[in-house]
Design a protein around this nucleic acid. Structure first.
Lengths: 224, 224
DNA sequence: CTAAAAAGTGAGTGATTACTTACATTGTGA
DNA sequence: TCACAATGTAAGTAATCACTCACTTTTTAG
């Protein structure tokens, strides 16, 4: 009925990770429904009665398992970030970096950008919810920064420093400037693609991403 | 009492622009209070009674002037974007571009980045509100894209094409790739600066921005 | 000055909210 | 089989919500 349900989302298996094994089927149903309702309406506009309806349980059952509405949000998002989004992001970066040490930087960056794009389009609604609610729930903000942002940046810095040592890229700029700049170029490209245009996701934009990588590597200035 | 009040915000004069002259003092008070409450709690969690309290009027007065709560939000944000944020952004870009046609691109980009940074730090809360609520109110989204995003991009594209014709920068990349990439580098740098670090805004980061511009112009690759 | 219109008010309005409680059902260990 | 705990539920609960209305005050026009 609801195609944004947790079970259809690429990220869904997150709630079944080790540290969440104590979750029963019913609790999982509730969090599944909560994801759908929260992503559609936002935390404040979502109601516990609608979550109950979509989960197929009574409202009392919800409050048997979760003390407050906010608890539902955090019980859903924090493990999702900590156990799934975070490791998924960081590990795929780590793998791509160590497995392709001898590939040209250009190729590695393309792989990273494409993987990032897939992740972003697959989990659009969820990411929007997380970033929106991070404004109002500091616990969320800390988990995102600590488990995803910081660790991902760390991996990319490793890649850059690896290539700096090989003499492939400039050593007169700190690695974090290169990392954040590349990240910014790619993410803003993808966001503006989604927001400003009607083009379908994942359609023949490999060439465009290659242009951005070209720009990142060779710069905008005319060659002398 | 509330240091986020409209009258203290750099953008505040927006509501007094020509097309809003029909606003009375009381209406202005209400929108001023609405800005404070909406930015603090978000649209859904904000209550009309608190807006009334902060505006120093009764709740009935609010609904005498605005039909619904959503009307308050739009009556506040749409003119703010259309009459102030939009023109301010676009005009300052236009001026910097035409006034400095003979300055090195590096200098012009620095001016643009610094001006952007000032705008962003001065209007942080307001921008957060706008981007958050744009998710749920398509009218807002359209105004932002049409009045700010599209027109700003247009100006930057003009700058890039101007410099492409002068042979200063590469002509084998479409202007929009250069524009969005530069924008992404700068904005993500600023956001990560605000979110990940504790550094005070506007403090000695001129050098860092210059590094980003250097990267944009000359690329990450080792010079051959 | 006056009368009508506009603006302001605070006490409602019914609907809805997150959450509770009293009770029923189910699962479990001996 | 039975006692008891865990789980589930529908009908609450008080609070709060956006919004209205009957009425007073202020502004305006002739």
């Amino acid at each position: 009925m609801d195609d944004r349900s947790l079970s259809d989302q690429p990220i869904s298996t997150g709630l079944q990770e080790p540290s969440d094994l104590q979750l029963t089927d019913k609790q999982w149903n509730i969090l599944d429904a909560a994801l759908a309702v929260f992503t559609e309406k936002g935390f404040s506009a979502a109601t516990t009665s609608e979550i109950a309806r979509q989960a197929g349980v009574s409202e009392g059952t919800i409050f048997r398992h979760f003390k407050t509405k906010k608890d539902i949000l955090l019980a859903m998002l924090v493990p999702l970030i900590r156990n799934t989004m975070g490791p998924k992001s960081v590990n795929s970066l780590t793998q791509m970096i160590v497995k392709n040490e001898n590939l040209p930087l250009r190729e590695v960056l393309l792989m990273i950008a494409l993987e990032r794009q897939e992740f972003l389009t697959d989990n659009q609604a969820l990411l929007r919810l997380i970033l929106t609610e991070a404004q109002y729930h500091p616990e969320l903000r800390e988990v995102i920064i600590g488990e995803v942002a910081y660790k991902s940046q760390e991996q990319l810095i490793r890649l850059i420093e690896q290539r700096q040592q090989k003499g492939e890229i400039r050593q007169d700029l700190p690695a974090w400037v290169l990392v954040r700049s590349f990240f910014g170029m790619v993410v803003v490209y993808m966001l503006s693609r989604v927001m400003l245009t009607k083009r379908e996701a994942g359609k023949d934009n490999r060439e465009e991403i290659l242009k951005i990588i070209d720009l990142f590597l060779n710069g905008a200035a005319m060659e002398k």
